[in-house]
């Protein structure tokens, strides 16, 4: 497979959120604004990229039966590193994302890529795969965050377009579910037409 296809499949054809419907908890939980979605997406991308690289490096060393616990340890280490770094340098964003940062560790997407891709491919392919998947995830979160922020508070990336409130529903929990439902439906349609 050439590296460009390998990279772009994570963004379009196998997009984690729209197509594989993985990692739904942070997708719904932190996308109250475009900025939060972007922050969460990039944090996840970092973990995905690093864990993919390390898993593909050590895959020969780890016996089959204990590979899942070993992968979990590797992923959890990178999650903790992200936690510490964000706490130190972007404390405001860290407060906003809160619980969902440690929860990257149980994001099925991360363990899924380690198991399904990095454990079978070389370091370069795994890195490209992790980056593509992560950026696809980031894109989805950023889109959902933008939609919810635009409709819910009439702003984008913190820049206000209207006076007062928007449709508050979209900032609240129900709006997250409904906005995501329509986004997936639209993506289904687009993908079907391209297929």
């Amino acid at each position: 497979m050439n590296q460009w296809n390998n990279f772009s499949k994570g963004i379009f054809k196998e997009n984690a959120v729209f197509v594989q419907v993985l990692g739904m908890c942070p997708t719904l939980g932190v996308t109250t604004s475009a900025y939060n979605g972007l922050g969460m997406g990039l944090a996840t991308t970092f973990v995905l990229l690093m864990s993919n690289i390390v898993v593909s490096m050590v895959k020969g060393f780890i016996p089959d039966k204990v590979r899942i616990p070993a992968y979990i340890v590797i992923i959890a280490s990178f999650v903790t590193i992200v936690e510490l770094i964000m706490q130190a340098f972007v404390p405001v964003l860290f407060d906003e994302l809160g619980l969902f940062i440690p929860l990257i560790v149980v994001n099925c997407l991360v363990l899924g890529r380690s198991e399904a891709f990095a454990s079978k491919n070389n370091v370069l392919s795994s890195a490209v795969d992790g980056l593509g998947m992560g950026l696809g995830f980031t894109l989805a979160l950023f889109m959902l965050g933008s939609i919810r922020e635009l409709l819910g508070s009439g702003a984008w990336l913190g820049i206000k377009f209207i006076h007062g409130d928007g449709m508050l529903l979209f900032i609240l929990a129900p709006g997250a579910f409904i906005a995501l439902a329509y986004l997936i439906a639209i993506m289904n349609r687009v993908n079907r037409r391209n297929a």
């Binding site: 929990a173 579910f177 409904i178 439902a181 289904n188």
Partner: peptide, 20 residues
């Protein structure tokens, strides 16, 4: 286009509204 997962999310949204 709404079949399966999207419609499940719509229901979840309505449920979530009810729980509010």
């Amino acid at each position: 286009g709404m079949k399966g997962i999207p419609v499940a999310f719509i229901i979840a949204g309505i449920l979530s509204m009810a729980f509010m």
